[in-house]
Design a protein around this nucleic acid. Structure first.
Lengths: 126, 126
DNA sequence: CTAACTGTGTTAGTACGGATAATACACTTA
DNA sequence: TAAGTGTATTATCCGTACTAACACAGTTAG
């Protein structure tokens, strides 16, 4: 179900979070869909249940999923939370790179054309 | 000379690296300019000399500065290294955010307009 | 009712990286 | 020669990620 990179520097619980978010945002997982149980997912991807639990707890705190003791975890019926998370994250990433370019003395035009270049490269690659 | 944020999650040695790079890229520090000594800078910003040394060593390995035993450290006479570093970093940051948006199911147009929006916000803010 | 499954919480231990601390050595320069 | 440079080594402290082993509470199928 998920693709975990054990060699990446990114924490495992964050990888789980992001991939579940992506599955929801792209419509593969839909509102009210069942998620694998904490123990089941931990077994599937060969990590400790506590690490999965940490990811689920964070996702619930953000309103992306809902967990019920004894029953399981589901995709939240309301997708507005995940929309807000993505817009907020992408905006802050954009701000970060724009600030970086400004610190390097890049003009607005240069940043703009570099963005267009990379966007085209990424688009044609897939 | 530098502005260090001791509460930030970003490591101190990285903050030093980035700020020196920025000073060079924006022309405040010029090729062959003297840099403060390891011990002097450590005293100025109240951190351990080893942390400054680590930043300087990394900058030298990248070709941004040159250090000479017994004499001191200077901005590299050749600015091509720092140009390459910035372009490489900004490109990878752009790739990262574009990939993130793609994982969220965003269209190319939506990414593009969000970038334009944030760029204008950041530009008018300063 | 009971057993097996759920989520949740706690505590302990391991591993790693950032940062500090205290030196020591080699080189340059006034 | 003395003071200031870069460089290297070793030890220690701290926070975080992760694992491990539980215990507890709720649900559900038999």
């Amino acid at each position: 179900m998920l693709h975990i990179d054990y060699t990446a520097s990114q924490p495992l619980h964050q990888q789980i979070e992001e991939q579940i978010c992506s599955l929801i945002a792209t419509g593969i997982l839909r509102p009210n869909d069942w998620l694998p149980s904490v123990r089941q997912l931990a077994t599937d991807i060969s990590i400790n249940p506590n690490t999965v639990q940490r990811a689920y707890a964070s996702l619930e705190e953000k309103g992306v999923i809902v967990s019920v003791k004894g029953r399981g975890s589901f995709v939240s019926p309301d997708l507005s939370a995940i929309d807000r998370i993505y817009t907020k994250n992408i905006d802050s990433m954009l701000r970060e790179v724009i600030t970086k370019a400004a610190l390097a003395g890049w003009s607005k035009d240069r940043i703009y054309s570099e963005f267009s270049k990379v966007l085209e490269e990424e688009a044609t690659q897939k």
